[in-house]
Design a binder for these strands. Structure first.
Lengths: 199, 199
DNA sequence: AATCGTCTGGGACAAACGACCCAGAACCGC
DNA sequence: GCGGTTCTGGGTCGTTTGTCCCAGACGATT
């Protein structure tokens, strides 16, 4: 087995855990399974991490960072509001289809955090991050297109989170990309009707 | 320990598993934990069920039956389309708040079924059931209000599933009932704009 | 009251898990 | 080349899990 510095091993193990959870669910992510996926000796696990919880903690941070770059990278500006919304939502969607595992892991993470009291707050922070990126993206579009949002941005942000999340979960189940894009496009049009001329 | 016929024990165990999964997640639902929750001896488990998988299978059937009655009981008719949609969505929402565990179990079930190949198709059937009930409810409203839906009903049904599912998951995380109702009401108004006079 | 099928009680079991340990191989700066 | 650090290999430990077993207590039927 190749000798690999601990720092790099950590990343390998996190990435391996990411794949395992994404493909086989949270329960499959045992220390042995993760090490096998990473091609690492079992001893490497507790050499790199104090405990399994530490791996999970790092994985959570990693997943949320990836999410932030993916969803916040959004805000694609176009001449009209509808087109901007559609392009932005489609931009997000591209990142989902490009790496379905990321979303699978995030939903698995949410689910797991909801039941485990020791992870209380993790799911909340996750969704606060969702709302925050949705809010900034909506504001960028409003400024870029020279409009303002009629309802409070918080409310619109929640709608965005609800729809993107719902679309993603539905797609994870049946992998119907056409239906997913239909819903997102329809949502873009509906959202656009909530724009008003800037004050 | 009271002597209880096997048939009744089965129901007790299923109900106990339901509570455990809803409150503590899928991983907590061990045979011992479920029996303890049901107040049953451990031996009762494998006397009533051939395996844990059989319990899970029965629990899935039970959850989907509950879901069907809850979501399909919908279709509250009002003079206008908007009001009907809003009342129907709120009717569904009442059942969510009345029994949050049901939804928690269903999302946990989806998540679990996505990873486990031996449960392949369970999540798919679950979402097909969602779509079916959404479709019939939308059709009922269309007939009741004397309108027709401009886009294909399948597409609208998916939107309904996406939004209700998304709202539910978001609420399970932060329990913000006001925000949930806001989104549902806004969605009702948006959906109503997709109605056209009957042919 | 004797009998028979039903259910309980208290174990037992192998497997898999997280965690730990330590001798020694590989690598580094010197 | 040498010494010390870094990582690996292969094991062990206690716990928890699903599953199984069986003697015996119970309840209904006769």
């Amino acid at each position: 087995m190749a000798r690999i510095p601990a720092r790099e091993r950590r990343h390998q193990l996190v990435a391996a855990a990411f794949r395992v959870i994404g493909e086989e669910g949270f329960a499959a992510a045992t220390t042995r399974r993760v090490c096998a996926e990473a091609g690492a000796p079992l001893a490497a696990f507790h050499y790199c991490f104090a405990s399994k919880a530490e791996l999970l903690s790092e994985l959570t941070a990693h997943a949320m960072a990836e999410l932030e770059t993916a969803r916040a990278g959004g805000a694609v500006l176009r001449p009209t509001v509808v087109e901007s919304l559609r392009a932005t939502l489609r931009g997000y969607w591209d990142t989902v289809e490009a790496d379905p595992n990321r979303e699978a892991v995030l939903t698995a993470l949410t689910q797991h955090a909801l039941g485990d009291p020791s992870l209380a707050g993790v799911a909340q922070r996750q969704y606060e991050a969702y709302h925050r990126t949705a809010r900034t993206t909506l504001t960028e579009i409003a400024e870029g297109c020279g409009i303002r949002w009629r309802p409070p941005v918080e409310q619109l942000a929640r709608m965005v989170v609800v729809v993107t999340d719902g679309v993603t979960v539905a797609w994870l189940v049946d992998r119907d990309s056409t239906a997913a894009l239909n819903v997102l496009d329809a949502f873009a049009e509906q959202l656009a009707t909530l724009a008003a001329p800037a004050t």
